[in-house]
């Protein structure tokens, strides 16, 4: 059963067409990755999926069994930047969806899950980039979504923090049975995290190629099969004139 069906007939900014005839669906329990160069419209596609951008022709349908409501929408979003409210503490930011009367037990559980125990009362200005992004991930999980949309969430942190955060997201998502759609331009990240990778071409090239990652989890970053798939991806990207 597919949880999320995206069908964009056309999306334009002014006269520039960014997305054109794109169909994408996310299966239950699937980890899908959109891989493409800057400006290919992958972030726009994700924003359309999240309902943040409504100026397009086409449709987005979410079928999660329960429809969700304002308090717990079925879809959560992790932005490229942490986007924490600087005037709220870590705990208040995580419980942001419920404002002042958030569920303290759930927030404390999430703080422990993302490895920030002891920082509940810390203000965002005292957090490093990696810590702030952990808070943002916890905030997205607070509403107990079925689908997680991630827009290049690890692109602003250093390579080592990135690997830790990737493992953290995988662990949290597996524990909760959440399906996710991740946007990235990092091939290694796409292969390490994704079950299925959709490659987008430059301009309004659309989805040029898709590929299943047939590597069992937990994956080893050094696995030979990942290296083989990486060369496939590079070949496909070259064919699509991305590189």
């Amino acid at each position: 059963m597919s949880l999320l069906d995206i069908d964009v007939r056309e999306k334009a900014f002014g006269k520039t067409i960014v997305l054109h005839d794109i169909k994408l669906s996310l299966e239950n329990g699937q980890a899908a990755v959109l891989l493409g160069p800057s400006g290919c419209g992958k972030s726009t596609l994700l924003r359309i999926a999240a309902g943040l951008d409504k100026q397009f022709s086409g449709s987005v349908s979410v079928k999660t069994g329960h429809d969700g409501n304002a308090k717990s929408p079925p879809v959560a979003f992790v932005f490229q930047e942490p986007r924490l409210m600087p005037w709220l503490t870590v705990a208040q930011n995580i419980g942001f969806a419920d404002g002042g009367k958030f569920d303290t037990a759930r927030v404390n559980g999430l703080i422990a899950d993302v490895g920030l125990t002891g920082h509940a009362a810390t203000l965002p200005k005292a957090l490093s980039g990696g810590m702030a992004q952990r808070v943002a991930i916890a905030r997205a999980l607070y509403t107990e979504p079925r689908i997680l949309l991630l827009d290049e969430p690890f692109s602003a942190v250093d390579a080592f923090t990135r690997m830790k955060l990737q493992d953290l997201v995988l662990k949290l998502v597996e524990q909760r049975g959440i399906s996710f759609l991740l946007v990235t331009h990092d091939i290694d990240e796409a292969l390490y995290l994704g079950d299925r990778i959709y490659m987008m071409g430059a301009g309004d090239g659309g989805i040029q190629h898709d590929l299943s990652v047939d590597v069992a989890r937990p994956r080893d970053r050094r696995a030979a099969r990942l290296a083989e798939l990486k060369s496939d991806v590079l070949t496909a990207l070259q064919a699509a004139h991305v590189i």
Binding site: V114, L116, T117, L127, S128, G130, M131, K164, D167, L168
Partner: peptide
């Protein structure tokens, strides 16, 4: 997952 202390910028202050 543990958190290394250098991640906490407030400490220097």
């Amino acid at each position: 997952m543990t958190l290394s202390t250098h991640e906490f910028r407030g400490e220097a202050q």
